[in-house]
């Protein structure tokens, strides 16, 4: 974790210190090296509470729920995402992070609720319409287009291509110049991501980490306003993680809004301006990264509210049934057969 410790050192507010009384932006800029973390400064004075209104929200989510059968995967009452900042989305497995991503980008439709980007309702839009508005995403399982070359992967990301309409594709003169511009831009990005030497290789032969880089670079080809990264660092070696982190920070420098899902808390603490914690489909905490590790709700979500108690109703039932059975055994029923039968019929939870 070598990156800008000063910023965090200066900002390492204790859990007792109210954020309103935190250090002022001037001290932050005096700390120097960190270029401009406008979002961090803007978010500094906000209370650390769920659903807090941000000064300049890019994405606003309201009462979004999504259930799969009986399971409520996402139930978000209110969430605002600050423009130009890096918002980390964390939570235990199955917390609904990816489902929330899918909802926000149109890949899934919610049961209720609405959300908007720059004041535009995104509710009924399909994925490609959301992408055209400037909200692009990457996927948890990297989707490199294997049998296209790296450069073709990149060119696919460009928006408003004339040659992508069937009839105009037949007249090369209509799209050649645009294609050339796009190729130059793609090569610039590839150089930034150190993939330029691979431009004519099939994306399918890239390593896992290179595919992550390619996917991120491809998303950037569309000149997005909001970039949503689903576990960008998963399965990437530490050296490459550092370079990916650098790229994510660069996005913020360019004024993009970044939302990312990540499990590595070091990474989250390093780059995010604001952290949103989800558990069991709900947002249980929000705040700057340093506020999160001390948050009781977060600790409960990751480690369990009572460290010795079961997490779910079913587990609770099973433990109770076991206790009953052992009581019955103690009551003197010799081998306890009826008791164990009861357990197995209970425990299988038909």
């Amino acid at each position: 974790m070598p990156a800008d410790p000063t910023a965090h050192g200066a900002h390492a507010a204790g859990p007792d210190e109210t954020p309103a009384a935190g250090p002022t932006p001037t001290r932050e800029s005096a700390a120097g090296r960190t270029p401009q973390r406008l979002a961090q400064a803007a978010l500094k004075d906000l209370p650390w509470e769920v659903g807090v209104a941000k000064p300049d929200p890019a994405i606003v989510v309201d009462k979004v729920t999504r259930s799969f059968g009986g399971l409520t995967a996402v139930s978000v009452d209110h969430l605002e995402v600050q423009r130009g900042g890096i918002t980390g989305l964390i939570g235990p497995n199955g917390a609904g992070k990816t489902t929330l991503f899918n909802l926000l980008t149109g890949f899934d439709q919610p049961n209720t609720g609405s959300w908007s980007f720059d004041g535009r309702d995104l509710g009924k839009l399909s994925p490609h319409q959301v992408a055209r508005l400037g909200v692009v995403r990457t996927f948890q399982l990297t989707k490199a287009l294997s049998r296209l070359t790296v450069l073709q992967n990149m060119l696919l990301g460009a928006q408003g291509q004339r040659g992508e309409s069937f009839l105009r594709a037949l007249v090369p003169g209509g799209w050649r110049s645009q294609e050339k511009e796009n190729t130059e831009r793609a090569m610039d990005l590839l150089r930034r991501f150190k993939l330029d030497a691979k431009k004519d290789d099939f994306a399918g032969i890239l390593s896992g980490g290179q595919r992550k880089l390619l996917e991120m670079a491809r998303a950037l080809m569309s000149d997005p306003k909001v970039v949503m990264l689903d576990e960008p660092m998963a399965g990437v070696n530490p050296a490459l993680t550092q370079s990916l982190l650098g790229h994510v920070k660069d996005l913020r420098e360019e004024g993009m809004t970044v939302i990312f899902v990540e499990h590595d808390m070091d990474v989250v603490r390093d780059i995010s301006d604001w952290v949103v914690v989800m558990a069991a489909g709900k947002i249980i905490a929000e705040g700057p990264p340093e506020s999160i590790s001390q948050n009781k709700a977060v600790v409960d979500a990751y480690l369990g509210a009572h460290h010795d108690a079961p997490l779910t109703v079913e587990e609770e039932d099973r433990v109770l049934a076991e206790a009953d059975a052992s009581l019955a055994r103690e009551d003197g029923l010799p081998p306890g057969r009826p008791g164990t039968d009861e357990i197995s019929s209970d425990g299988s939870t038909r």
Partner: peptide, 30 residues
């Protein structure tokens, strides 16, 4: 016709759909 189409951006989109539809959707193509 196929040769011309498949070397155009249209062909690129179509080939990308063969590889992974969702990735193409996420890049703003219908």
């Amino acid at each position: 016709l196929v040769w011309q189409l498949m070397r155009s951006p249209w062909g690129r989109v179509v080939k990308a759909i063969r590889e992974d539809e969702d990735a193409v959707r996420a890049l703003g193509k219908n």
